[in-house]
Nucleic acid binder design. Sequence first.
DNA 1: AGTCATTAATGACTTTTGGTCATATATAAT
DNA 2: ATTATATATGACCAAAAGTCATTAATGACT
Lengths: 226, 226
Amino acid sequence: MQRKKEEKRKTILDAAEKLIAEDGFRDMTMDQVAKDADVAKGTVYLYFKNKNSLCAAVNARINKELNQVIKEKMDLYQTGLEKVVASGTATVEFCLKNMQKWKAITELYQMKFKDPEDPNVKEFLYEVNNMVQMMANGYRQGIKEGTIREDLDPVPTAIFNRMAFSNAITPTTEQNMLLKMNNINMQHYAGVAGELIGRSTRKDLLNAEDMKKNIKKTYENLEKDL
Amino acid sequence: MQRKKEEKRKTILDAAEKLIAEDGFRDMTMDQVAKDADVAKGTVYLYFKNKNSLCAAVNARINKELNQVIKEKMDLYQTGLEKVVASGTATVEFCLKNMQKWKAITELYQMKFKDPEDPNVKEFLYEVNNMVQMMANGYRQGIKEGTIREDLDPVPTAIFNRMAFSNAITPTTEQNMLLKMNNINMQHYAGVAGELIGRSTRKDLLNAEDMKKNIKKTYENLEKDL
DNA sequence: AGTCATTAATGACTTTTGGTCATATATAAT
DNA sequence: ATTATATATGACCAAAAGTCATTAATGACT
């Protein structure tokens, strides 16, 4: 019984994730989620308090997966700088391998999760904070090892860079329009942005190529979709 | 007659701007806009095609004002780096003097303007692009003068930094929650983020204090509101 | 197997809100 | 004064979030 419930929850999440990736959470309707998940609308509300909570749950699930991938990749390396770069590489890889999921979290990036009591919102925040802490630890280690600027405060830097990195891979619609107006393709933007992020944190200014290349690689695949 | 139409349009824009600043564009209802502007709902739709277009018009108007302020400030200085710093200072000043307008554009930052044919969307993009070009020119000049990194591509850098700077002053709700979880206040975040932005573009790493201070100053006032 | 209690599922219904349109009013032209 | 045009209105419609009385399924206990 518990098993079946778990599965039905997953089915609903799957349907929601797909719809969010396709049209954004604004255009995702609860009726369509119900239809795609082969349940009645009331059932969706049995599993998720409201649309906001459902979106938070989708967001939590994807970020959990992403964290897993990032953690595994980071664990392959020893130095702080390597780990930080690895977190970027892992994110790009995740984006390439799970386009739907990546599209969904970037769409959800614009969402306001107002209710901090909602367990799904809590779980989502827990996951995001987890990633921030992983990055912050990478910075701390890099600082000790002398490869990352020592005057940098790890946690707020991680909070900022997480956003910045995500933006490098997937600019906002506004930015996309600006890029179009100026005939700049997304790969190039990703490269420039990645470079800026790297420059701001790294101590040695050489070897900026890694991060840049990673993000560029993403775009060769991602642009087909758009 | 033309005069009266112009004024009514302004009244509607004022009402919308206020509501967006208060609750975000999602919670702004066209009924409330009509009520606050003392016109019938149909009249609002006479002046603005739809909600999206109204929001775009609000966004265009504020960005136009902001550009004005930025341009004036930049014109006071000679060197590229000074101009770039001035654009930041002007933005912070604008934010301090026009909290409602600043709140509104940061809320509107999350909006998707889908219809590129809409004249209000066009005007909005025109203004934003204008600002990007001003910043890019500052970078170009700074590169020539040797104060800004020469390997930096001005336009995409401006597109990225405009977003980054705005985020430094006003983090997303998600980031705000993370900051809260980690007991980091917004001033500190603004300082860290401003520093990162400065570091990524400036050639000489000294004198990072300017940009940092500017953003920090913002927060002393802004936090009262929140 | 049959009865009953509890849990899960349903979809018709309500409410909210973006958007429309037939009608009414004001303004300008003749 | 009359007509034509522009402006304004709010009742109405449709879409979508969210509710709830009713029904169906499940499992425990005789």
